[in-house]
């Protein structure tokens, strides 16, 4: 017979312990994230929707030209006309803040992992864990640490969305032509000069592809974050499911898709900007 291991109780005890002893830390995180998210939500929702849409169209035109600008116009007008504007802007703010944190943590970790085999060996299984653990499961500790609302949604989202930032940064730095790095060494460059002036710029396209993935994952997570009361499109989706409201489901679902396409194309255009010809 295999002895029973009370793994579940241990984890529950650990969460309780952390909640009791690190309350100040969770408060600080809560305060920071809720402040940033609600500030950005306010910024998106404060102007009349047509003004915000106009700004999006300018951005779209600047990055990709007229066809994408037209898409932006029609897509966001549709969102506005089905009454999903505010929910969409709330979600956009949540995605952007979660992405910001995921990138701010993920890229440096990826750089460390690329330069140090030990860090790489430690980080890899953690990333596997973060990506494959069913997403509902870490909604639970997030709620226990941060309560119900925007913050647990944002935290769960950034944890879920971070791995591509780490992985692709690591990959990008490792893929930089070894001979080019050797050349930098041969000319007497310091490790920092090599990292910031050679490896990082050359890895940038790959890193940007990682950031694009972070954004997409974050957007797919916000629906689930809606279950934690994070608001936005997620809440609309959860509500439509719990009330079997097909109409609301279609409106909120399509809004997610529209936002996803917009963010994907914008981040892709940003990542290919300023690349030298091959």
């Amino acid at each position: 017979m295999v002895p029973e291991i009370p793994l579940g109780r241990w984890v529950a005890d650990l969460v309780d312990f952390l909640r009791d002893n690190l309350a100040f830390l969770f408060d600080a995180i809560t305060w920071t994230i809720s402040g940033l998210v609600s500030g950005l939500q306010w910024a998106f929702n404060f102007p009349p929707s047509l003004v915000t849409i106009a700004l999006f169209i300018l951005l779209a035109f600047w990055l990709r030209g007229a066809p994408f600008a037209l898409y932006t116009l029609l897509a966001f007008l549709l969102i506005d006309s089905v009454g999903m504007w505010q929910a969409t802007m709330d979600t956009l703010a949540l995605v952007l803040i979660a992405t910001l944190f995921a990138v701010a943590i993920g890229v440096p970790v990826g750089i460390l992992a690329a330069r140090n085999a030990l860090v790489h060996a430690i980080v890899r299984p953690i990333l596997d864990f973060m990506q494959t653990l069913p997403v509902f499961i870490y909604l639970l500790p997030a709620i226990m640490f941060f309560g119900i609302g925007t913050v647990p949604g944002a935290v769960a989202t950034l944890v879920f969305a971070m791995p591509p930032a780490v992985r692709l940064t690591n990959l990008g730095i490792r893929q930089v032509d070894a001979e080019v790095v050797e050349a930098a060494h041969a000319f007497g460059a310091t490790p920092n000069q090599i990292l910031f002036r050679v490896q990082f710029p050359l890895a940038l396209p790959t890193i940007m592809a990682g950031i694009n993935q972070v954004i997409m994952l974050a957007l797919s997570m916000v629906v689930i974050a809606g279950m934690a009361g994070a608001g936005g499109l997620g809440s609309q989706v959860v509500r439509s499911v719990s009330t079997v409201n097909i109409g609301l489901g279609a409106e909120s679902g399509i809004s997610v898709v529209i936002l996803a396409i917009f963010l994907d194309r914008v981040s892709e255009a940003l990542s290919t900007r300023g690349q030298p010809p091959a």
Binding site: D177, E179, V180, E182, A183, A184, H185, A186, F187, G188, A189, T190, V198, P201, L202, Q275, P276, A278
Partner: peptide, 23 residues
């Protein structure tokens, strides 16, 4: 000292050029 030596006394040319493509 080694970096000083590499940057002032020696320079190197590589088989596959090893140029910086982003510059």
């Amino acid at each position: 000292q080694l970096r000083a030596l590499r940057s002032r006394k020696m320079s190197m040319v590589f088989q596959r050029f090893a140029l910086f493509p982003h510059r």
